[in-house]
Amino acid sequence: MSSNQTFIYILRFVVLVLVQVFLLNNINLNGYINPYIYLLFILLYPFNGNSTLLIIWSFFLGLSIDIFENSGGIHAAASVFAAYLRPYVLKFSFGLSYEYNVVKISKSSLPEKLTYLGTMIFLHHLMLFMMEIFSFNHLLLVLKSTVFSGIFTFILIYSSIVLFGNKSE
């Protein structure tokens, strides 16, 4: 990884954390629905990038949000979970070709893109709310929060990819 690339990641990391904490966490639609756009960091990480490094990045990304939110380690756990499963989701969404660096998220076909984003967001949010609510008696609440927040996140992430897609690739 070149130092220029590392700088871009650090910048993206800081910007996403600040946007998440100061802007999006104050939306509280209907009392509890917030989008979690910081997941964009994990989604946009190069498909052929070092996956071990991504897990470490993700841990600190989630932990930064947790410290701001006093939420223990729920964002860290969900981010690490999403980062670990990402290679499998990539293979599932784009087929084997993603390993040869031919796939770019802004240039992939719509169904592939939707599968990739949808699966990643669902996995991340499911783990996030399971850790947050931390009880199997409230499974319905977990699913409800996952679906509502997930849709919100999806719309926001999809539009940011469409808006900034050409530059960030």
Partner: peptide
């Protein structure tokens, strides 16, 4: 993941 669970 274990560390994060512990914090939680």
């Amino acid at each position: 993941f274990s560390i994060a669970t512990y914090f939680t």
